[in-house]
């Protein structure tokens, strides 16, 4: 293979790759939970310094075990648990971020799909009762309360563990 042909093929591959990974900017991640509390330290007990919404894009500053330090859009930074973040771009229903949705991987995460609109239609058709599902969802304890609950029960971590 001549150098030129190799260059052409290599160039073609790069173009293809760029197309696919258009918005896959290095070290950017998206929030995967409805409301994410950003904390001052890598712990659920860390002080809440900001709140991020589903689909928000943040730049990764550092990582520590299961926690990721991110730069906040309003300046400063804070920590999120890694399970609240994805490397994929979350395309929202309202059409936000759509301009970035060039690649197939992002389209796979498009906000269209099973959403509130679909659930409403499904509720109409199935006549299911969501009263208790809604009630259940409102039962939320803060991490502080949960840690207190464990402490009051004398649960201090890795008691019977030995791993």
């Amino acid at each position: 293979m001549s150098g030129l042909k190799r260059w052409v093929l290599g160039g073609w591959l790069l173009v293809a790759l760029t197309g696919l990974a258009a918005a896959d900017q290095k070290n950017m991640m998206s929030v995967t939970v409805e409301q994410a509390a950003v904390r001052a330290t890598p712990s659920f007990l860390g002080k809440i310094v900001a709140s991020l919404a589903y689909g928000d894009r943040v730049a990764v500053v550092a990582e520590k075990q299961d926690w990721v330090e991110v730069a906040l859009p309003q300046g400063g930074d804070g920590w999120l648990h890694s399970s609240a973040l994805t490397t994929k771009v979350v395309v929202l229903q309202s059409g936000q971020n759509v301009s970035q949705s060039a690649s197939s991987s992002e389209v796979a995460l498009a906000g269209k799909g099973f959403n509130e609109q679909v659930e409403t239609q499904y509720q109409d058709e199935s006549h299911l009762d969501y009263t208790w599902v809604n009630r259940m969802e409102k039962i939320v304890f803060s991490p502080d309360v949960l840690v207190k609950f464990l402490a009051e029960g004398g649960i201090t971590g890795d008691q019977g563990g030995g791993n």
Binding site: Y54, S104, S105, A108, L109, A110, G111, N115, E119
Partner: peptide
């Protein structure tokens, strides 16, 4: 791999709506 469609491609929001209806059933 990213364009392969699997259960991992459901967004967290879609997973949530699926979960709500499974709960209702």
């Amino acid at each position: 791999q990213a364009v392969q469609q699997s259960f991992q491609d459901f967004t967290p929001e879609q997973e949530y709506y699926i979960g709500r209806s499974v709960a209702a059933v």
